[in-house]
């Protein structure tokens, strides 16, 4: 049976994840990635158990989470669409593509569609700079994204 107190269940699970990484030199980033992969975000509730396991202050954990673009304190939509904003993709029309995506989804950067299907995030280079504009849906990369291909991706993601 699941723990009756969800907070205690969460803290136990996080302690487990921390213990799995205890042998690493500099374990905090791998732990934060693992917790976010499992829970979808790093809410306020995860900070105390991580701080306790690593014997560092809660402020330190909070400071690290807030420094990095990848870590989110609010859950994302079911899919994350990242569109490259960097120069090589701009040279191939990425700025207009991003505007199309924003208008189609009705969100700005970092926003999630009303139906919870897609969160739109900017990304600065995916290493696909000779086949831009580039995008990534969850972990899948896509090159030469034009309006048609964008629409296919959005339909596939349920937006």
């Amino acid at each position: 049976m699941r723990a009756l107190d969800p907070e205690a269940g969460l803290a136990d699970r996080i302690s487990e994840i921390c213990a799995d990484h205890a042998h690493l030199e500099g374990p905090l980033l791998p732990i934060l990635h693992a917790v976010q992969d499992e829970l979808g975000s790093l809410s306020e509730a995860v900070i105390a158990p991580i701080a306790e396991a690593l014997n560092i202050s809660r402020a330190e954990v909070h400071g690290v989470i807030s420094f990095y673009h990848d870590f989110r304190t609010e859950p994302a939509g079911r899919h994350i669409l990242k569109i490259c904003r960097a120069e090589a993709c701009q040279a191939m029309g990425a700025t207009a593509l991003a505007e199309t995506a924003k208008a189609r989804l009705g969100v700005d950067w970092h926003g999630t569609t009303g139906n919870g299907a897609v969160t739109l995030e900017p990304v600065y280079c995916l290493g696909l700079c000779a086949c831009g504009p580039a995008a990534m849906v969850d972990d899948r990369v896509v090159g030469r994204v034009d309006a048609g291909r964008l629409e296919d991706l959005l339909v596939e993601a349920g937006a």
Binding site: L24, E25, G26, P27, L28, L29, P30, L32, H33, L54, G63, V64, F67, Y68, H69, D70, F71, V123, Y124
Partner: peptide, 27 residues
């Protein structure tokens, strides 16, 4: 070992990278 960054351009700067690898803010 392979360690994964967390989406900060400045962490390519070598000392910022080392801080990040140690589990700190990438300052």
């Amino acid at each position: 070992e392979i360690r994964v960054g967390a989406g900060a351009y400045v962490c390519g700067e070598e000392t910022s990278l080392l801080n990040s690898l140690e589990g700190k803010r990438g300052v």
